[in-house]
Structures are given as C-alpha cells and as structure tokens.
C-alpha cells in the first residue's frame, strides 16, 4: 500500500460528517484489470451536495473510480454504497465521461429530446439548456460539431438529468476559454453532489470544497480543494517529475 503523501499535510477536515446524508460511501473499493489493480483500497465518503475534486497523474485510476461510482463498471472488491443504498440508483446518477454519449446523426436539441423522453425529463427546458451551454444556435447534426461542442452537449445532458450525483471526467478537456467559463457555470448549477476528475486543477479547484489525490489506484492525500495544486506538486516532486 502506498503511504500517505507527507510533503503536504493531510487534512483532518474531510468535508463529510457522519450526520450528513451520504451519497457515496466506499470501503476498501478496488477494481482489477487482469493482474493490475486500477483502483485499490479506496475508502471515500461524499455528502449530499458536496463538490469533490479527484486529481492524480495519468493512469492513476480516476476514470475507473468514476465508472465504478456510476455503476457502469462493477468493483472487483470492497463495498460501494450509493445514494443511501437506494435499490436502483442509476436514474439518479449522471456521468460525463471521456466519450460524449451522443448520437452523431441527430442535432443537439434532438439528442436532448431523446434522453428527455427516456429519462422522464421536461422537454420544454431544452432551449434553455442549449443556451446555457452555448449551443442554442446550432441546428445541424452533432457529427459537424467540434470536440469541445460535443462535450458541452454532454454537459447539457447532465443538466437535463439533474442527478443527485454527477460524475464529471475531465470536463474542461478540449474547451476554449469561453467554454471553460460556461462549463464552470454549468457545474455550479448542478443541484446534487458533484465529483470532478480533472488535470486542470486551477479550473476545477474553485468549484470544489474538497479534493483527493490519487496515485497508482490509491488515495494518497485528502484535503481542502484550495490545497490540491500544492498536493499535486508535492506528488510530482516525490515522483521526480519536477
């Protein structure tokens, strides 16, 4: 097991109190691909409405952790409790992953309309949602969208679903400065708990209250989000990257 990161002090403030309603609780969570553990011994609690930032180097297990929390990837070991052990939490979880999950042949409005029907959301909100992410003027098929615009549409899906737990994997990837501002505003508008995995700490940290640093599948540091950048620098220094 990797030791806690000593170069920066571990915070005793977890942001989570036992009295709070818990949307995510994991104990000794792990996921193995072949002989390699992508996520190992993760103990994590996230309170309702909390904003958690997950940082760490490439391949440290951030995406795997988010996919496990989204229930699209079963864990190999450990215990996972979502939304108070709700029997069917899926409809209350939103995931914005590396893939955008959109239909290329449909327009942005049609994509939202499809998932509004399937998810029971109100289709009357679609123009507002598209305006929020800056796609209200585009009526053409998503196949003609840039990568950043597709990610904005994926975010609109998340806003439409209004999940109790939103999981965002690299939400600022492929975004221009205007897009980053829109994404930040949209994340702030999400009603439930939010977990963001991002390398762009300077964009993500102001949106979060707490951060965890992952390395080789394990949580090495937990603390306030405003110290996340310092923790990451300490990790890089320890690894000899800096």
């Amino acid at each position: 097991m990797r030791p806690p990161l000593t170069a920066i002090q571990q915070s005793t403030e977890t942001g989570y109190e036992p009295t709070m309603e818990c949307v995510v609780k994991t104990e000794n969570l792990g996921r193995r691909f072949g002989r390699r553990w992508a996520v190992a011994r993760v103990d994590l609690s996230v309170a309702a409405g909390e904003r958690l930032l997950v940082i760490g180097p490439n391949g440290c297990g951030k995406t795997t952790l988010l996919r496990i929390l989204a229930t699209v990837l079963p864990p190999s070991q450990g215990r996972l409790e979502l939304l108070g052990d709700a029997p069917s939490p899926r409809g209350r979880i939103g995931l914005m992953g590396h893939e955008t999950g959109v239909y290329e042949d449909l327009s942005a409005a049609e994509n939202l309309s499809v998932f509004a029907r399937l998810g029971g959301a109100d289709p009357a909100n679609i123009p507002t949602l598209l305006a929020t992410v800056g796609l209200d003027t585009r009526t053409d098929a998503v196949s003609s969208f840039s990568a950043g615009m597709r990610r904005r549409l994926a975010l609109a899906h998340l806003l439409q679903a209004q999940p109790d737990l939103a999981l965002l994997d690299e939400p600022f990837a492929q975004m221009d400065p205007g897009g980053i501002a829109q994404v930040s505003r949209s994340i702030q508008a999400l009603p439930g708990a939010v977990i963001i995995a991002s390398h762009q700490v300077h964009h993500a940290a102001p949106l979060c209250t707490r951060a965890v640093l992952m390395d080789e599948g394990q949580i090495r540091w937990t603390g306030p989000a405003n110290q996340a950048e310092a923790a990451w620098r300490a990790l890089h220094k320890e690894r000899g990257d800096l």
């Binding site: 989204a70 229930t71 699209v72 069917s88 899926r90 409809g91 979880i93 939103g94 995931l95 992953g97 893939e99 999950g101 959109v102 998932f115 399937l118 998810g119 029971g120 899906h157 679903a161």
Partner: peptide, 8 residues
C-alpha cells in the same frame, strides 16, 4: 452508457 444511466 447514457441509456443505461436513464431509468430504462
């Protein structure tokens, strides 16, 4: 994946 995360 998005479909599976809807109540479908």
């Amino acid at each position: 994946q998005r479909l599976l995360l809807t109540p479908v």
